[in-house]
């Protein structure tokens, strides 16, 4: 192995130095009715404000509403099959070295600051928010938090999400 640890840390200094920096290029995407509705159908959420313009108007919205958690998926950029990694995710994220065997998705949290509407253009910027080594019952692990800020075409932050990864 090229990266033999010289100390007990699972997090190389070069990785620790990435805290606060962008982990991928910013992504911009338009919220489309079809994609928003496909997401709503997939999670079984058939709220009329996502599907029926009259229902959205009656609820006081200017147009169709997107489900709150859809914004995360709206900014996933489709790519050809040869750019999908064996874990099914797209290549392109900036590499981050850790001295671990496996990483898992531990959870996610959002702040919703403003509604997201069909027709909005959303820009997502993801930074490495924190990376901490912890002691667990099954040994040391690393808690990685990436924070994404979603901003609409008016410059308003509509949501912020934090994705929590666990690596050991």
């Amino acid at each position: 192995m090229q990266d033999q640890p010289t100390d007990e840390s699972l997090v190389p200094d070069e990785t620790r130095a990435l805290v606060g920096t962008l982990v991928a290029e910013p992504v911009r995407a338009e919220i489309t009715a079809k994609e928003s509705q496909r997401y709503a159908q997939a999670v079984g959420d058939l709220d009329p404000v996502y599907f029926d313009i009259d229902a959205a108007s009656a609820a006081g919205h200017p147009t169709l509403v997107a489900p709150p958690t859809f914004v995360t998926h709206a900014v996933v950029v489709g790519l050809p099959l040869d750019r999908i990694r064996t874990d099914g995710l797209f290549t392109g994220a900036m590499p981050m070295r850790l001295r671990v065997q496996r990483t898992m998705f531990g959870g996610e949290e959002w702040d919703f600051d403003a509604p997201v509407y069909v027709g909005d253009t959303i820009t997502a910027e993801t930074r490495l928010a924190s990376i901490d080594e912890k002691a667990g019952s099954k040994g040391p692990f690393v808690r990685i938090v990436r924070e994404t800020t979603f901003t609409n075409q008016h410059g308003d932050v509509v949501a912020r999400s934090r994705q929590i990864g666990i690596a050991r």
Partner: peptide, 9 residues
């Protein structure tokens, strides 16, 4: 398909 998460797991 809707989320774009194609992890084969």
């Amino acid at each position: 398909g809707a989320s774009g998460d194609y992890n084969p797991i």
